[in-house]
Amino acid sequence: MKAVSVVTIKKELKHRSTEELLALCLRLSKFKKENKELLTYLLFEAHDEKGYIETVKSEIDEQFEAINTNSYFYIKKSVRKILRSIKKYARYSLKKETEVELLLHFCTVLKDFKPSITRNITLMNIYDRQIASIKKIVSGLHEDLQYDYRVKLEALED
Rank of each mutant, 00 (worst) to 15 (best):
2 K>M: 08
6 V>E: 10
7 V>R: 04
7 V>D: 10
8 T>Y: 06
9 I>P: 01
10 K>P: 00
12 E>R: 06
14 K>Y: 05
18 T>P: 05
18 T>E: 12
19 E>T: 11
20 E>K: 14
21 L>V: 06
22 L>N: 07
23 A>T: 15
23 A>H: 08
24 L>C: 06
25 C>A: 14
30 K>F: 12
30 K>N: 09
32 K>C: 08
32 K>T: 15
33 K>V: 11
34 E>L: 00
35 N>S: 15
35 N>R: 06
36 K>V: 08
37 E>V: 00
38 L>V: 02
38 L>G: 02
40 T>E: 03
43 L>P: 03
44 F>E: 06
46 A>V: 03
46 A>Q: 12
48 D>Y: 05
50 K>D: 14
55 T>A: 11
56 V>D: 03
56 V>S: 07
57 K>V: 11
59 E>L: 07
59 E>W: 03
60 I>H: 02
60 I>V: 15
65 E>L: 06
66 A>P: 01
67 I>M: 01
67 I>T: 05
68 N>G: 04
69 T>D: 13
70 N>D: 14
70 N>C: 09
70 N>A: 11
71 S>C: 10
72 Y>T: 00
73 F>H: 12
73 F>C: 02
74 Y>L: 13
74 Y>N: 12
75 I>H: 10
75 I>Q: 07
75 I>M: 10
75 I>A: 07
76 K>C: 10
77 K>M: 13
77 K>T: 15
77 K>H: 14
78 S>Q: 11
79 V>G: 11
79 V>F: 12
79 V>C: 14
80 R>C: 08
80 R>Q: 15
80 R>A: 11
81 K>P: 04
81 K>Q: 12
84 R>P: 02
84 R>K: 15
84 R>W: 06
86 I>C: 00
87 K>W: 06
88 K>R: 03
89 Y>P: 01
90 A>I: 01
90 A>H: 01
92 Y>Q: 05
93 S>D: 06
94 L>E: 12
96 K>L: 04
97 E>N: 11
98 T>W: 01
98 T>L: 00
99 E>T: 06
101 E>S: 06
103 L>D: 04
103 L>V: 00
104 L>E: 04
105 H>V: 05
106 F>H: 03
106 F>C: 06
106 F>A: 07
107 C>P: 01
108 T>G: 11
108 T>C: 06
110 L>Q: 05
110 L>G: 02
110 L>A: 03
111 K>F: 08
112 D>I: 05
114 K>F: 09
114 K>V: 10
114 K>I: 07
116 S>E: 12
118 T>Q: 09
118 T>R: 10
119 R>A: 07
122 T>R: 01
123 L>K: 03
126 I>V: 15
126 I>D: 01
127 Y>Q: 05
128 D>S: 10
130 Q>F: 09
131 I>A: 00
131 I>E: 02
132 A>H: 08
132 A>N: 11
132 A>V: 04
132 A>Q: 09
134 I>G: 05
134 I>Y: 08
135 K>Y: 03
139 S>T: 09
139 S>Q: 13
139 S>A: 15
140 G>P: 07
142 H>N: 14
143 E>D: 11
143 E>M: 10
144 D>Y: 15
144 D>F: 11
144 D>S: 15
146 Q>N: 09
146 Q>D: 04
147 Y>S: 12
148 D>R: 15
149 Y>N: 08
153 L>A: 06
153 L>Y: 10
155 A>H: 14
157 E>L: 13
158 D>M: 07
